[in-house]
Design a protein around this nucleic acid. Structure first.
Lengths: 339, 339
DNA sequence: CTGAAAGCGCTTACAG
DNA sequence: CTGAAAGCGCTTACAG
């Protein structure tokens, strides 16, 4: 690969002149510039971004830390991030954490070694090491679909899980349901807790008793949703509706009803959360709460670009709204208001 | 951020000594090394990968060009790539092409500017510019789920679409089907053509006439699969089975049967291709052809690492096998052998 | 074992 | 307008 020296030698000029020609500096004779550009073209020369980065003290690269890119939820966000960043001239260096804490740390180290200009992170483990590592980072960081540790003065972009969850439960209440079961994600996750809180608070605000037997913290898989539904059916008598804290659980619950001949929505209403692609399949048509996935990624990227441009370490967080997507898994409660 | 000079100054040593201490060079007094490491720790110094890369002439980064990361098919491959590369000490710089030719070109330019050590590419557009750009690249490149242009002496990792497709059609033949419809992807794609060829050749090899009305080149979406099925049902009389060239089309076809009360597999057998997650859903259970998605990504990464290590520009391509996954959408032809 | 010097491929004041 | 020189943050022969 030719270097700037080769170009200069070929032309019998100094490297400074060649440099000026490529960076369209005003102090250069048009004729000279033309000649330089021609030789550059001819020799197929591409300037080294490494050398430039050393001088300019920026690399035009940003790191994107994702738990699991093969999860459609994250890949949509990643796409949003990539689109706006690449339009802004940045390269995204993507790291798949496979939900392992050591990889998260390693990624941060790599980010400082490689002098990345900014970071968008969706960490699963915010332990001490991670937080302290982040604290001494000198570059802008935005959290995506995660909330930063309180000690970290960093912005986030997320959806209002609590509000979305309240809306889902309200919808069931509007349909006349009173005995509403809950199939939740692990309580260890922030998201899981927020959605659970929405369920609880909405029932309480309407003075509807919360039934301990109506709540199961199942997990994240189809199977766990299925088992959760099974448990609720066995233990929560009179239940006419279920709020599943995410679509995968909701679909698992639907599988249970399909296998056991319980008709949805006639005998059982079900609402999910996330609006995954597959919820719109003909056989599923799950009523659910949509999150603007790609849009979140975009917003995070825009926020980061702004921070990088203005060299700010923080900015206003963005809490986005969810939307209830009504499909075919909910109906008016047959027994009317039982209370 | 401190530099190596700061460390040296702090210790009253030369930068060479500091450098030797970090790179565990043998020519250094253990005591000195200890001191250096201590100050490094204390000042929280991280050496610049940029500076190192300039000297070593490698960046330990590789580019990954993907058409659309939000497609579960590609995201699984990307994950496989990322896993082995990051274990090998490489950073993957991921580029989402959004199926746009200009982005593909830009990505290649960026790869040479940034001195990436290697490239894994899944291009959608292999036009002249792209090929000539690739031809003058001095770094190893492996094609993933794509075949390189014949002028390019580069290896690929892909699945044998033709064979997989033959197997699917053979399976239907074994079940006694003779009038087998085909819902295909666009003929412009290599994959689409290969799978089509498998269908054609298998029928021919059994001396089964190929019915022009039994073939529709639908597209890639659920809707196009649905419409494709509709067309076949209207035009290809006596059809008892359908081979859909990918799962999305197959599911679209299934939606048609479900809506029109045609029972599967009793009245109609359907086989897909890809083994997407959702094909295993309770309501779908589509018999299909599985590709080792993550494994393909892994293999491509391993191939590339080998090429980078041995500074070879090419290597043996890898053609992986598919596997027929039998689920619930196929049954023995009711009419038996019509022929 | 340690330090001074050259060099990786550029850019940018500073002279002229 | 152009060139020589210094410098970005490192590593690596080369002396000593």
């Amino acid at each position: 690969m030719p270097t700037i020296k080769d170009i200069a030698k070929q032309l019998g000029m100094s490297v400074s002149t060649v440099s000026r020609a490529m960076n369209n500096h005003p102090d250069i004779k048009p004729e000279t510039k033309r000649k330089v550009l021609q030789v550059i073209e001819q020799l197929n020369y591409t300037p080294s971004a490494l050398a430039r980065s050393m001088i300019h003290r920026k690399t035009l690269s940003v790191g994107l830390m994702m738990p699991d890119i093969s999860d459609p939820f994250f890949s949509a966000m990643a796409q949003g991030v990539e689109e706006v960043l690449s339009d802004g001239g940045y390269q995204v260096v993507y790291g798949n954490m496979s939900r392992r804490p050591d990889k998260e740390l390693r990624f941060l180290v790599s980010a400082v070694e490689r002098k990345m200009d900014g970071l968008i992170v969706t960490p699963d483990f915010m332990d001490e090491d991670f937080v302290s590592m982040l604290k001494r980072l000198k570059i802008p960081v935005v959290f995506l679909r995660r909330r930063p540790h309180p000690e970290l003065n960093m912005p986030f972009v997320d959806v209002d899980h609590y509000k979305g969850s309240c809306r889902a439960v309200e919808y069931l209440l509007e349909l006349g349901h009173r005995r509403i079961g809950f199939i939740g994600m692990p309580e260890t996750s922030f998201t899981g807790r927020e959605r659970y809180r929405g369920y609880l608070d909405t029932l309480k605000s309407r003075n509807i008793p919360v039934a301990p037997h109506g709540i199961v913290h199942a997990g994240r898989t189809f199977k766990q949703g299925y088992q959760g539904m099974e448990k609720l059916m066995a233990e929560y008598s009179g239940m006419t509706a279920v709020f599943a804290a995410n679509d995968v659980l909701g679909i698992g619950a639907l599988e249970w009803t399909a296998k056991h001949g319980l008709s949805v929505p006639e005998q059982m209403s079900i609402v999910g959360f996330d609006n995954l692609e597959m919820t719109d399949l003909h056989w599923i048509k799950l009523t659910t709460v949509a999150q603007p996935r790609m849009e979140m990624g975009r917003k995070a990227a825009e926020l980061l670009m702004e921070m990088m441009k203005e060299e700010k370490q923080t900015a206003e967080s963005i809490l986005m709204d969810t939307e209830l997507v009504v499909r075919h898994t909910c109906a008016i409660a047959r027994e009317g208001i039982i209370s």
